[in-house]
Design a protein around this nucleic acid. Structure first.
Ligand SMILES: [Zn+2]
Ligand SMILES: [Zn+2]
Ligand SMILES: [Zn+2]
Ligand SMILES: [Zn+2]
Ligand SMILES: [Zn+2]
Length: 762
DNA sequence: TCTGCTGGCGCCCTCTGCTGGTTGACG
DNA sequence: ACGTCAACCAGCAGAGGGCGCCAGCAGA
């Protein structure tokens, strides 16, 4: 078999075809390993490295002859991208110790295979460099706990170890905080469960439950009554025949007749998976998690749970307490236990409120000196020792730098269970979760509106206080209540990809703001001119409507009689008059508009203004009036494709408000004038006749270019056309503009549903 | 064994900025 | 009446600051 490049599944397949014992030897890596080894009811080991690094797996074939003679094969698991795959190897139970009498499997002989490799599959965390993640693996993974459903106290119990021989320094240090030793507990029901914690030191109880030399150290749980913690402590083997590999070896602190491993047969190193066996054997041996560097002989004492190394054995022993969950120092107030007296004292201070460390700058008190130092750095000196290598960020605390680095790496370890959002830190995930739970912790004390974020409430409260900040645009007088809105304002009004051209005069402007400013100078100008006739309007919409005349479109169709109209309001008026029996036209209003010159009264201001022209000494006003008068008599009509000038009867209605302004069609009927527009160039006027827009010469005649198309059978128009028998109803006519002259024909002020407007000059 | 110091983890906060819906003015 | 526009506003995520609390190291 190849000794390199195999995948885990290769090895698994291979192993499944034999009854093999497998041991993990990690000769290539000396750091960053986290693994789990556990065993099922059938006595099968499951080895699960949690980090994808090149690993050598030693396969020891079953010793059928029971003579201790085994075949050994090595398999190197390819590194590749296996950081994201699950490394689960089924290890068949050895029947003998690899070297010597021990390592007898603890199986009760029930090789029913209930704990299959598949069942043992677990997804390795994407990053085992995070102590937090690893911690979750060991404490929160119900799947593993289920698989460890051992109902016999004499089971092999091997759960976890962490040994982060930090090549990566700080990150591994972080992991060390969490990966503290082997962890398991057995409840009263005999179920083995993963549980956070570890044990070592003098208080541990040695339990030899197996017939092998594997020892389980039991630490009675003080926090979970009815459960016991089983912790194996492995010591480095001094007899390891290292060969040319830098293997971890194990010492035995008690007894050495068992658990002697060759290079190729050694147990999974504690740092990558602690193996614990317990059965009814007679070899009670404690394997401490202390190993000694082979190369340095007895000089260096290394912790097997972490990368701690010391030349002094007592220091290492003291260090080992850090892997214990013992908390001998109890708080008298809250019963909580602490590992050290100092921790207890600090904790007691939190009860008593004693804060011995005072800031010399601001006199703030702190429980510990470290808090004080940190406070001074944050508040007073701004000393930030931790620099980001990729940007200018620096921080007081290393953890802040680590958090910051995630914005460079994009790492988002905290996945929302409800959606795809993943957060770079716990706070943001917690805050995000509120949108799923509906929790809104922040309430406005004035209006009791609730918000998910404190700052949303803060922003909201400004609308009550009236003390809104004002952000003034530097480029115009606009003010905004929020900076972000000012930014949008600037983006929309003061930035433009390309210059903006005024459609009315073709001038060019750099942004929308200056364009709009300029556009106001066109106010009142009839800049929108018809290409086909002299019609002009202040509004492009009016021009669009006008263009229907040329295209002969009537988009508004009555569903009840299938008449069509060019304007919506004409359709509505038609429907009121002909299809709405309930329609009641309002009563005519009083004549309140009185001429100061002659005292004549009018109902509409526009008519008064028009009347005033006769008192105007200015000849032009007179001329205008005269031109209109003439225009009303002279009009053009298209009949069978020929333009025909039509001269209607003299019918001056200017002084008679009771009659609508009208022109006489070629049929002799009177056409009501709905709109009269003076062209911008002064070359003429338009009249709107029954919704038709008719250009007028300055003398009042209809322009030849403008075909007069008046639908005589248009019921919307005929009532007014036919001798004005049914005058336009005020409700049908809307005043659209406030301009005085808009009302000069008296269609203003009445109703609000029509759009017909009459314009005459400006 | 004590003690001071260092440092990590977790929690909560603020500031910031983007996004999209709403609203009122306007043409 | 209707569409457009721009300011208003809530919602929500990114980033960082500050601190409580505790473990662990190392020297005395
Ligand atoms: Zn201070
Ligand atoms: Zn950075
Ligand atoms: Zn979510
Ligand atoms: Zn409020
Ligand atoms: Zn212009």
């Amino acid at each position: 078999m190849d000794d390199c490049g195999e995948t885990i599944s290769d090895i698994q397949n291979y192993l499944s075809s034999f009854n093999k014992e497998i041991q993990q030897v990690d000769s290539h890596i000396s750091s960053g390993e986290v693994a789990q080894v556990f065993i099922d009811e059938a006595g099968r080991y499951y080895y699960q490295p949690l980090e994808g690094a090149p690993q050598q797996v030693v396969v020891v074939t079953e010793d059928d002859e029971q003579d201790g003679d085994r075949e050994v094969e090595e398999h190197t698991i390819s590194s590749g991208d296996n950081s994201n795959i699950t490394h689960t190897v089924v290890i068949s139970e050895p029947t003998q110790s690899v070297s010597g009498p021990s390592k007898r499997p603890v199986t009760s002989g029930t090789a029913d295979g209930s704990g299959s490799a598949t069942a043992a599959h677990r997804r390795a965390p994407s990053s085992t460099k995070s102590g937090r993640v690893s911690n979750e693996v060991q404490t929160k993974d119900g799947e593993v706990a289920d698989q460890l459903n051992l109902c016999n106290e004499s089971r092999v119990i091997t759960i976890k170890n962490s040994g982060l021989m930090g090549a990566d320094g700080a990150e591994d240090d972080e992991a060390l905080q969490s990966l503290a030793g082997a962890i398991a507990s057995v409840g009263e029901d005999g179920l083995l469960q993963l549980r956070e914690g570890s044990a070592s030191g003098a208080n541990q109880v040695i339990l030899n439950t197996g017939n092998s030399n594997q020892i389980v150290t039991i630490v009675p749980s003080t926090t979970n009554p009815g459960e016991m913690s089983y912790v194996l402590i492995v010591e480095q083997n001094a007899n390891d025949g290292g060969g040319d590999k830098d293997h971890t070896v194990y010492d035995f602190t008690e007894g050495e007749d068992a658990f002697t491993f060759s290079d190729d047969e050694e147990d999974p190193p504690p740092r990558s998976g602690v193996l614990i066996n317990s059965n009814s054997g007679s070899n009670n041996k404690q394997r401490s998690a202390i190993r000694r560097s082979q190369s340095t002989g007895s000089q260096a004492h290394m912790c097997n749970y972490c990368n701690y190394t010391s030349t002094k054995r007592y220091l290492l022993i003291r260090h080992m307490r850090s892997h214990s969950e013992e908390r001998p120092h109890k708080c008298s107030v809250c019963e909580r236990g602490f590992k050290t007296l100092g921790s207890l004292q600090n904790h007691l201070n939190t009860h008593t409120g004693v804060k011995p460390h005072r800031c010399k700058f601001c006199d703030t008190g702190f429980t510990t000196s470290g808090e004080l130092v940190r406070h001074v750095r944050y508040i007073h000196t701004q000393e930030k020792p931790h620099k980001c290598p990729e940007c200018h960020y620096s921080s007081v605390e290393l953890s802040k730098l680590k958090r910051h680095m995630r914005c460079h790496t994009g790492e988002r370890p905290y996945q929302c269970i409800h959606c795809t959002y993943a957060s770079p830190d716990t706070f943001k995930l917690k805050r995000h979760l509120r949108i799923h739970t509906g929790e809104k912790p922040y309430e406005c004390d004035i209006c009791h509106a609730r918000f998910t974020q404190s700052n949303s409430l803060k922003a909201h409260k400004l609308i009550h206080t009236g003390s809104k900040p004002v952000y003034t645009c530097e480029l115009c007088p606009t003010t905004c209540g929020r900076k972000t809105d000012l930014r949008i304002h600037i983006q929309k009004l003061h930035t433009s990809d390309k210059p903006i051209k005024c459609k009315k005069c073709t001038k060019i402007f750099p942004d929308r703001y200056t364009f709009k400013l300029h556009n106001k100078t066109h106010d009142g100008e009839k800049c929108f001119k018809c290409d086909l006739c002299p019609y002009a309007s202040t509004s492009s919409r009016h021009l669009d409507s006008h263009m229907l005349v040329h295209t002969e479109q009537k988009p508004y169709r009555c569903e009840m009689c299938e008449q069509s109209f060019r304007q919506k309001q004409l359709l509505r008026r038609h429907q009121n008059l002909y299809h709405n029996p309930q329609y009641i036209p309002p009563a005519p209003r009083e004549k309140t508009q009185e001429c100061p010159e002659c005292g004549k009264a009018f109902r509409h201001k526009g008519n008064l203004i028009r009347h005033m022209a006769i008192h105007d000494p200015d000849a032009s006003a007179q001329e205008k009036s005269q031109a209109l008068k003439l225009g009303r008599q002279k009009r053009l009509q298209l009949i069978n494709g020929q333009q025909v000038e039509v001269y209607g009867a003299e019918n001056d209605t200017t002084e008679d408000e009771d009659q609508l302004m009208s022109v006489e069609g070629d049929d002799g009927n009177q056409y009501v004038v709905l709109e009269v527009i003076q062209l911008a160039g002064g070359e003429g006027h338009h009249v709107m006749v029954g919704g038709e827009d008719l250009p007028l010469h300055s003398d009042g005649s209809l322009l030849p270019a403008s075909p007069l198309v008046v639908s005589q059978d248009d019921p919307a128009i005929n009532p007014t056309i036919l001798g004005l028998q049914q005058p336009l109803l005020p409700d049908d006519i809307k005043k659209e503009t406030k301009k005085e002259m808009d009302t000069c024909f008296g269609f203003d002020e009445d109703g609000d549903t029509g759009q017909i407007h009459l314009q005459f000059g400006e």
